[in-house]
Amino acid sequence: MKFGILIQDGPYNHEAGDSAYNFVVAALAKGHEITGIFFYNDGVLNATRFMDPPTDDRNIVKRWSELGAKGIDIIVCIAAAKRRGIIDANLAPNIRISGLGQLVDLTLNADRMITFGG
C-alpha cells in the first residue's frame, strides 16, 4: 500500500514525530511505499540541521535525513517554515522546502494519508 504522511507537531515536545517515524520504518519493513512525508504547522521544526540533543537521546532530525537518503521524499511547507525561521540555510540534508501543493499531490498519490499530531 502507498502511504502519505503528514506531521503537524514539532520534535521532542510531542510524540507525533516519533510515532510517524516508527510508522514509516515499520511500513517500509513490510514492503509498503511512502509517497512522501510532509511537515506542516510546528512540524517544520523537525527539519532544522541545528538540532543537537544530548547523546543519550534520539536525534530526530538525523533520523529524517537518513530516511531521506533512502529516497523517501521529505518536504517542509514553505509558508509554515518561513513563519518559524526554517530556511534552506538551516535545513537538514535530504529534506526539501516546497509548497502546500506538494501535500495535495502526495495525498492524491497515496492510498492512505496518515496524520500525526495536531
Binding site: 506542516y40 509558508a79 509548497g99 502546500l100 495535495v104
Partner: peptide
C-alpha cells in the same frame, strides 16, 4: 493555536486542485 489558520491555508490551496 495556529492549526485552524494554517489549516485554512491548506484548504484554499487544495481548492485549486479540482478535488
Amino acid at each position: 493555536s495556529i492549526y485552524p489558520y494554517e489549516g485554512l491555508e491548506f484548504i484554499l490551496i487544495s481548492g485549486a486542485y479540482e478535488q
